[in-house]
Each structure stands twice: as C-alpha cells, then as structure tokens.
Amino acid sequence: MRTVLICDDEPIIRMSLKNRLKELGFGEIIECGDGEAAVQSALSRLPDIAILDVSMPKMDGISAARAIRKKLKIPILLLTACIDPDTVNKAKEVGVAAFLTKPFRDQDLWPAIELAFAHAHEIDELKEQVEDLKETIESRKVIEKAKGVLMRTQGLSEPEAFRKMQKLAMDKRKSLRQIADAILLTES
C-alpha cells in the first residue's frame, strides 16, 4: 500500500488531492501546509511519493524537494499555478519528477504519479547497472595486474598467466577476482 505526502498551504487543494489519492488507492496520506513541515514529515514518515506546492510559507516547494531528496530518493511532483523557465530549471536540478498545474485536473494526477514511479524505478535500475559496471571494470583492472605479476615472476605468457589464474579459481572454488587479489597480496 503506497504512502503519499501532500503539502499545500491551501486546505481546499489538500482536501481535493486527498480525496483523489484515496480513489487512486493510496493507503496513507500525510498532509501538511508548509515546506518545513513537508521536510520533517517526509523524513519521519518516509512516504513513497510527495506532492508539494511550489509557493508555500516557511520554505518553498523546490527547497523542500531539495531537502527531501538529499535523504530520500522518492519521486516528487510539484503543484503550481504558473510555470516559468527559472522554476522548471530549479526543479530539474533537484530531480523533480513532474509538474501539475493548478487547478489540477483529476485525469492529470494518475498519469503523473505512475510516470514518476516508473521514472524513479528506471533511475534505480540504471544506478545498479552503473555500480555493476564499475565493479566489473575494477575487477578487470585487478585481474590484469595479477596477470602481469604472474607473467613477470613466473615467466609466463599472457594466455598462460590467465589460464593459471582460471585453474586456481576453479580448483579453489574462488572467483577470478579473489585469486587476483590473493596474487597481488603475496606480491606486496
């Protein structure tokens, strides 16, 4: 069951949003009326998504979104009566998922939320892939260094050194990276 934080200083907008979000199946709806409360609520209650008004007392929506996204990587939608290029640029820098213009239409809310969740999921997957690639590259570097050590210390050719490392990995039931790390440890 999804949780949503809605923050707008206009109670009528919050009520309208809350009713529509209930219809969309959100189980818990956290409400507040200013940017500082939005940040505090988000960090203490950990919603799945946040919908923030751009213009709020105490802290504007973009500043609140920035503070929330420093700690939580949740999708954030911004509500605004008018969108100007400066606001859009600031929102992009913060990582805001979408804008909804006031008065928002019911039919605009669901697609914006679904696209925000899909985009957040896609970004998470891409970050995982990047981390995996970094790890693979790092492993290749270590394996190449270890291969060089074997070539230098045992007078092996490159294919022979690699084959020796593969055989050690199979015999000892270790990864090639673990064998390479061990070779480099004995070298130093």
Rank of each mutant, 00 (worst) to 15 (best):
G35M: 00
L17M: 05
R20W: 09
D34F: 00
L17V: 01
G27A: 11
N19E: 09
R45C: 04
G35L: 01
I12Y: 07
I13W: 01
G35H: 00
R14I: 01
L17I: 03
T3M: 11
T3K: 15
R2F: 13
I12D: 10
D8L: 02
P47A: 01
E23W: 12
L17D: 00
R14M: 05
T3W: 13
E28Y: 11
L5C: 07
P47N: 04
A38Y: 02
A42S: 06
R20F: 05
K22V: 12
L17R: 00
M1Q: 11
F26S: 00
S44M: 13
G35Y: 02
N19A: 08
S44P: 01
D9E: 08
L5Y: 14
I30C: 09
L43D: 11
L46A: 12
E31V: 09
G27P: 05
S41E: 05
I13E: 02
D9L: 04
A38H: 00
D8P: 02
Q40G: 12
P47E: 01
Q40W: 08
R20P: 02
V4C: 08
T3E: 15
C32L: 03
S41I: 00
E10R: 03
I6W: 02
G25D: 09
A37T: 09
E28K: 15
P47Q: 02
C32W: 09
D9R: 00
T3R: 15
A42N: 04
E36T: 15
L21M: 06
G25W: 14
N19G: 10
G33H: 04
G25V: 09
Q40Y: 11
P47S: 00
N19I: 05
V39G: 03
G27E: 11
E36F: 08
L24G: 06
M15R: 15
P47T: 02
C7I: 07
I12G: 04
M15H: 12
D8C: 03
D8R: 02
M15A: 07
K22Q: 14
V39Q: 04
I6A: 01
S41R: 11
Q40L: 15
D8M: 02
E31R: 11
D34N: 13
T3P: 08
I13S: 08
R14P: 03
L46G: 06
F26I: 03
K22T: 14
L21Q: 08
L46K: 13
E31S: 08
C32M: 07
M1A: 15
G33V: 13
D34T: 00
R20N: 13
A37I: 11
A42W: 06
R2G: 04
E36S: 13
V39R: 03
I6P: 00
S44A: 14
E10V: 07
L21C: 05
F26R: 03
E10L: 02
I13T: 10
P11D: 06
G35I: 00
P11L: 06
L17A: 06
I13Y: 02
L43N: 14
P11K: 14
K22R: 15
L21S: 03
D34I: 00
D34C: 07
C7N: 05
R45F: 01
E28A: 14
A38L: 03
N19F: 12
T3G: 06
R14K: 07
I6Q: 01
M1F: 13
P11H: 04
R2K: 15
I30D: 12
T3N: 10
S41K: 10
I6V: 14
M15D: 08
K18H: 14
R2C: 06
D34K: 01
C7K: 07
I6M: 04
I30K: 14
R45S: 11
E36R: 14
I12Q: 14
